[in-house]
Computed example of a mutant assay.
Amino acid sequence: MRFGFSILIAALLLAACERHDAPALDQQLYIWQRQWTPAHDAALRDSRESFSTLRVLALQAFPNDGWHRARIDAPLLKHDGRPLIAVIRLDGQLKGLDQAQVTAQILQVVVDWQTQGLTLSGVEIDHDAGNARLPDYIEFLTHLRSALPASLPLSITALPAWLGSPQLPTLLATVDSSVLQVHAVSDPRRGLFDPEQARRWADDWGKVSRKPFYLALPAYGVALLPDAGGAPVVESEVPVERDGQRRELLADPLQLSTLAKALREDPPAHLAGLIWFRLPLPNDRRAWSLTTLRAVARGDALSSRLGLTFSEYDGLYDIHLANPGNLDAAWPAQLRVKARGCEGADALAGYSLQQSADLLTFTRLRDGRFPAGGQRAIGWARCAFIDQGGSHVDP
């Protein structure tokens, strides 16, 4: 009898432990292209297993440029089948929010998406209001909440600066959830992202919020250009027509992987998941590759394995750089290939070639990023013999 009682106690304790285990953090994805292309098909397909929900840019309002709809591919989103949240970007430089006009625009987006066969799981408002304007923002959100269908959740993108406002609890009470954005260029010396600061903000947000919140994390880079007064101008998805040397800032996948692991193991109160900005397309030169993004979101160990591959036909060798790992890497500084009896050789874009009797040396001419799982030609050579096992890659 005593043995059976012990088993019962152990089972109850185990069940109690299981009930208190933190749920796995949801992984979601922003789609932020205003103009959809055929490349979205493969990107959505390859992201489906790793990200549960799509938050899709639907509409933007600018101070001097009015309203702009994103040209989404509704049949593609319908076929994808994941929950959809329409994101409305209201530029922070707008002088004010006309409740009637903005609400009408948002409701029209909801109707148009539904007419195209899309089922919305929510609406997100992205508005970088200053602390002094939070009372007006609360009034607008209250109005919008009353105008939207009661069954349609409303969320907002939120700024860490709002933690200093006494209006924050009231603001969060007006919506169903919030998305804390912890990536921005506030100080170029600190880069695009500070993981320690992001963790502190998330912990502090969890102490204020009584509703679920998400953390928006960066999977991209930007360039900084000086303006006439010396202050930085940020170039991201859209090129800035301005001369000047660009300083590239890139969110580090290794840093983000470490932070995501810590958040999974010890999440702040009310943290429901992570949202990654943004879905990368093949021509998105400032975003992580989808291979790296998926690996970080899943918590996989990260590694890049740069190496050279060769294809030969009748003594003509095409030389390729390959990265079969899951971590994007910088273009290698130098590549060396042992070769004999070379009649001719040349480097392709991005590298120069120095040739000696038994060595081909390719030297990087400019910086670049090499995507995980990618391959690119870096040169060719017509040689009697190439020692493929004798090649060397210098990072």
Rank of each mutant, 00 (worst) to 15 (best):
L76H: 06
Q101I: 09
R199D: 12
D394K: 02
F362D: 00
S236Y: 07
E343T: 15
G373T: 14
V110G: 06
R264T: 11
R210P: 06
P332M: 07
W36A: 02
A231N: 12
L225V: 05
D41C: 11
K95N: 09
A329M: 01
R294N: 12
L274A: 06
I9C: 06
Y214H: 14
P166G: 05
R189F: 08
I275N: 05
L308Q: 06
L308E: 02
D314L: 14
D328G: 02
L94W: 04
R382K: 15
A347N: 12
A132Q: 07
F362S: 01
F140S: 06
D243F: 11
T174H: 03
Q245K: 15
L141C: 05
W331Q: 00
A132D: 10
T291S: 10
L94I: 12
A129I: 10
T53G: 02
H68K: 15
L180S: 03
H270A: 11
A384D: 14
V102S: 04
G374A: 13
A330I: 09
L359I: 10
H40N: 10
R382H: 10
L163Q: 13
D98S: 11
D314V: 13
F370P: 00
L250T: 05
R278I: 02
G341R: 15
G379Y: 00
I72A: 01
L250E: 05
I138M: 08
G325T: 05
K207S: 12
S311K: 11
S209K: 04
A260E: 08
R382S: 11
V233H: 06
F310P: 11
A295F: 02
N326L: 01
I378G: 00
L90W: 06
R382I: 08
H270I: 09
T174P: 01
W380H: 13
K211E: 04
V296D: 00
M1L: 13
L279G: 01
L59D: 03
G164P: 02
D26W: 03
F213L: 10
L107I: 04
D227A: 03
L224G: 05
W205V: 10
W380T: 07
A86G: 07
P239E: 11
P83H: 03
T119R: 15
D176T: 11
R285P: 01
G244P: 06
S165T: 08
W288N: 01
T103A: 09
A231L: 13
L249T: 03
D358F: 01
L8G: 08
A330Y: 05
A260H: 09
I72K: 00
T292V: 02
F193Y: 09
D46V: 11
I386Q: 08
G230P: 04
A198H: 05
A150E: 09
A74W: 06
Q105W: 02
L44Y: 00
A158T: 07
A147C: 11
L12N: 08
R210L: 15
P239D: 15
L8N: 07
P160W: 08
W205T: 13
I7D: 11
L224S: 02
N323F: 04
